[in-house]
């Protein structure tokens, strides 16, 4: 059980980070100062659930909550939905499927708008996960919308990644192939009550066999709980063997930071006098766009970057 007061302060800490009033360290420190931080470091098991809109992810999360609670584990859910690229508003409706847990103090559910154009993870998602961990939850589930090649960010957040799909005709499995096999720890064909589930699962199994890692393919009916025991077993197995996932998460974290650093360096280089000269040339039409890009890359990192 996680006390009401801890839940409230966790919720406020997440907002503070989400709104940029503090960074995650500040939030964790404040949290500890309130006497709430139960522990340090990543000890919660973090499960990422991703897949297309309407695949039944939230309904599945509801079932997972049920399963973990039956096992005596506390559960925090971070459910991310896309922000409108036009108004930046969002309708966050994932809770609707999980409302039977609304009165359970062992469950914390937080909706987040992605607040970025690309959808997928909200920038503050990983911080929210760390805060939920600090609050003492045993399991943190992150639900995100992912279509085709899921942004690899979720890899840095989750120890286990479940890709949810539905029975479909034709090229659905091809869509999945574009990047998801790199990050999926298991596939779930939800809505297995619909025609075509076996065929979709078989396609996925063939696809998975080509890879080096062992990736289970399961079928569920989230609405009535069919297939949930097998999914919980598969998750338990992956959770037990989490070490390689930690390695994977660290790899992606390094890539992420390196990418951020590269972007900062590029922005700084664009502010230099040399760069201004090139951009002036562009304004005066004395240099083509392609040549300007090459010239600016050369300024950034030497000739190796030009191509």
């Amino acid at each position: 059980m996680i006390a009401h007061r801890v839940q409230r302060d966790l919720a406020r800490a997440i907002s503070a980070v989400e709104n940029g009033h503090t960074d995650v360290r500040g939030a964790l420190a404040q949290f500890a100062a309130l006497g709430h931080a139960q522990r340090n470091g990543a000890r919660a098991d973090v499960i990422g659930i991703t897949g297309p809109p309407g695949a039944g992810k939230s309904t599945l999360v509801d079932r997972l909550i049920e399963g973990f609670r039956a096992n005596g584990e506390t559960v925090a859910v971070i459910a991310v939905d896309p922000s409108s690229p036009f108004t930046h508003g969002a309708v966050l409706g994932d809770r609707v499927r999980m409302q039977r847990h609304a009165g359970d103090r062992g469950v914390f559910i937080r909706s987040m708008a992605s607040r970025t154009a690309g959808g997928g993870l909200a920038p503050a998602t990983r911080d929210a996960v760390r805060l939920a961990d600090a609050a003492g939850f045993d399991v943190v589930i992150v639900e995100t919308v992912g279509v085709g090649q899921v942004e690899l960010e979720i890899v840095a957040v989750a120890d286990v990644i479940v890709v949810v799909t539905v029975p479909a005709l034709g090229d659905s499995v091809q869509t999945i192939k574009a990047g998801l096999t790199e990050i999926a720890d298991m596939f779930v064909v939800n809505m297995a009550d619909r025609p075509g589930a076996n065929a979709t699962a078989l396609d996925l199994k063939h696809m998975v066999r080509e890879g080096a890692r062992e990736i289970p393919v399961l079928q569920t009916v989230a609405q009535d709980g069919t297939g949930l025991p097998a999914l919980l077993d598969a998750l338990a197995a992956k959770r037990g063997a989490g070490d390689s996932n930690a390695v994977r998460a660290v790899r992606f974290e390094v890539v992420r930071r390196a990418r951020d650093a590269a972007v900062r360096a590029a922005l700084a280089a664009l502010d230099s006098d040399d760069a201004s000269a090139v951009l002036d040339g562009l304004r005066d039409h004395t240099i083509s766009r392609n040549d300007a890009v090459d010239a600016l890359l050369a300024i950034l990192g030497g000739p190796a970057h030009a191509h």
Partner: peptide
């Protein structure tokens, strides 16, 4: 940013959701 929780909410459910969100 609008959180929607569905039908038939008790005051307890509403307040819990308001706090967590």
């Amino acid at each position: 940013e609008v959180v929607y929780t569905g039908l038939h909410q008790t005051p307890e459910m509403i307040v819990n959701a308001a706090i967590q969100e």
